[in-house]
């Protein structure tokens, strides 16, 4: 049993080390890719970011609505329903916005990236690039990684904004909270530090989600089963890593 634990732990460390080296190479190639292949990066921002906007907005609207409902029903007991805006705003900007956006991003864009790269590997497209003396890491992996990293904070901003509007819709338009109180309370309670916390989290989660997608796709077993497994692992590992890092960043900031 101890041997199994040792083997598992050893494998995990090996995999983690290889992934860190992979990240280092992505970062190393980033400046040259941004200069020479910016059009590929732009396309990947569109692919990972713009194409995820609908799911992000719809989710943001309903998550905001739920927050508005929960906040109102609990705060009403203390005659504090005017502070619904603060409750929804803090939750969305500091926690729920970055976390749920990252989870949705992993489900929509992360799986798409992992399966796309995995299929390119399975159909020898990456090998073909290598044989044409084109480094697939620079041509395929880095633009997709950067596309995800750039998209995540933007998507988080969209999610949070639509979430606040969703909470407004429920709390103000449906439940009768005063519109002035909703926005004024939120504005006076919120500091820039709270916004920075959300931005830091969205950037870190963007790096995690994009790295996992690109890493899993790039290292997938080149079979149908291997690509499927890589796609599943992308979502599972990203979700766990995002929640762990969310706790760590929150603990660090508080």
């Amino acid at each position: 049993m101890f041997r199994d634990i040792y083997v598992t732990f050893h494998g995990f460390l090996q995999n983690f080390g290889a992934m860190c080296l992979f990240l280092a190479r992505l970062v190393q190639y980033t400046p040259s890719v941004l200069i020479k292949r910016y059009s590929l990066v732009t396309y990947q921002v569109y692919n990972a970011g713009a194409l995820s906007i609908v799911i992000i907005m719809v989710s943001g609207l309903f998550v905001g609505g739920v927050l508005g409902l929960q906040a109102y029903s609990n705060l009403e007991r203390f005659n504090a329903e005017d502070t619904t805006g603060i409750f929804a705003g803090f939750a969305l900007i500091k926690e729920i916005g970055p976390v749920i956006t990252a989870l949705l991003f992993a489900g929509r864009a992360g799986t798409s990236l992992a399966s796309e790269i995995g299929l390119m590997k399975a159909t020898d497209q990456l090998s073909a690039m290598e044989m044409m003396a084109v480094d697939p890491l620079r041509y395929v992996a880095v633009p997709r990684f950067l596309g995800g990293v750039i998209s995540m904070p933007l998507l988080t901003a969209v999610f949070t904004t639509v979430g606040l509007l969703g909470a407004h819709l429920v709390a103000v338009e449906l439940l009768g909270v005063d519109v002035g109180a909703y926005w004024q309370q939120l504005q006076s309670a919120l500091d820039m530090e709270d916004v920075y916390e959300g931005i830091i989290k969205s950037v870190v989660f963007g790096i995690i989600a994009s790295l996992m997608a690109v890493w899993e796709g790039y290292n997938s077993v080149p079979t149908a089963e291997g690509v499927g497994r890589a796609t599943t692992r992308t979502v599972v590992i990203t979700a766990i890593a995002v929640l762990v890092f969310d706790f760590m960043i929150t603990a660090w900031i508080l």
Binding site: T123, Q125, S127, A128, E130, A133, V134
Partner: peptide, 27 residues
């Protein structure tokens, strides 16, 4: 050195997001 090689893969290995023209123009 690899620029001196041309390789025809078993399944063609064409880049699926590019047209035939762009595939040949790629290298």
């Amino acid at each position: 050195l690899r620029q001196r090689f041309g390789v025809l893969f078993q399944n063609g290995a064409l880049l699926t997001d590019m047209s035939v023209f762009e595939n040949v123009a790629f290298p």
